[in-house]
Design a protein around this nucleic acid. Structure first.
Length: 266
DNA sequence: AATAACCTCAACCGCTGATTA
DNA sequence: TTAATCAGCGGTTGAGGTTAT
């Protein structure tokens, strides 16, 4: 009865991934795909459980991932989607190409939440903090069925709490009044985004899953992107084969050796 | 320079619904 | 139908880095 037992818990490694492990995982998935996470670690020669491999791949190694802080537009979109969906990070992430649910969740908890609180806005209800809960009409901000995003996501007439989020230290130190004054401009920016039918339909489309996005570029060629998490600072924002990084010849050649030049689309 | 306090985010944990034998 | 495992999700943790004292 039932399926075969999952991975053998004994001897399964935990903790941070090493470069070697990353290479093994990338190499295996690029060659064989990831039809079965349970079997993958053994086949790839990794002493990890399938769950850990899946997380590492989806949150860090996927070729289509963007790196670096969320842009202002992305941040605003996250806030807007959160007002509709609540803490449905995977659904929010599916609307932001190249971003993971974990990344968005972390960014929300460490940056956006604080900014909203600083502005006197409840991050959960997206309403002013001093507003009595009984006065809050949640039906306008959070659909009864959070999954039902076929509900008008947001129009310029929909009365969500319009939130402006700044992205720099300088800006974040500004007063609420200052931020309110810039709100119109930024709302205008977001309105423009929503006025763009093509972008709008893409962002609100359920068609493209993270996996599809990932495997549409199932190699490290022109569309794919591989980042080296061991590089910090500005370099970390560039793919390892990008001109910005390619001057580090040794590292580049190391990766070419590991994955084969063809993997980089040359 | 040393230490404490704070911040960030990768990774883990535990739960849920779907799937399978 | 049942029981076991699966993938996926959201919440939480803690190591390492940064900033303040």
């Amino acid at each position: 009865m039932g399926r075969q037992p999952c991975c053998d818990k004994l001897g399964v490694k935990k903790g941070p991934w090493t470069v070697e492990e990353d290479k093994k995982l990338i190499n295996f998935i690029l060659t064989n795909g990831h039809c079965c996470w349970r079997a993958l670690p053994k086949l790839a020669g990794l002493r990890r459980c399938g769950k850990s491999c899946r997380l590492r791949w989806t949150n860090y190694l996927r070729p289509d991932l963007k790196r670096g802080l969320l842009s202002h537009d992305e941040e605003q979109l996250v806030i807007d989607l959160h007002a509709n969906l609540g803490n449905k990070w995977s659904k929010i992430a599916s609307r932001l190409p190249g971003r993971t649910d974990n990344e968005i969740k972390n960014h929300w908890n460490t940056h956006i939440k604080k900014k909203l609180l600083k502005m006197g806005i409840d991050p959960m209800t997206h309403q002013p903090l001093n507003q009595e809960p009984s006065n809050i009409d949640n039906s306008k901000t959070i659909p009864s069925n959070p999954d039902d995003v076929s509900v008008e996501p947001k129009t310029t007439n929909t009365k969500y709490v319009e939130i402006s989020v700044t992205t720099t230290e300088e800006e974040s130190s500004s007063t609420v009044t200052d931020q309110n004054s810039s709100m119109d401009n930024e709302n205008h920016l977001i309105d423009n985004i929503y006025d763009d039918d093509e972008l709008f339909s893409y962002l609100w489309s359920d068609e493209t899953t993270k996996d599809e996005a990932s495997w549409s570029d199932s190699n490290f060629g022109v569309g794919g992107t591989l980042y080296d998490h061991n590089i910090s600072g500005a370099d970390a924002d560039f793919p390892i084969w990008s001109p910005e990084r390619i001057n580090d010849e040794k590292m580049f050649l190391d990766y070419c050796q590991d994955f084969g030049v063809h993997d980089f689309g040359f």
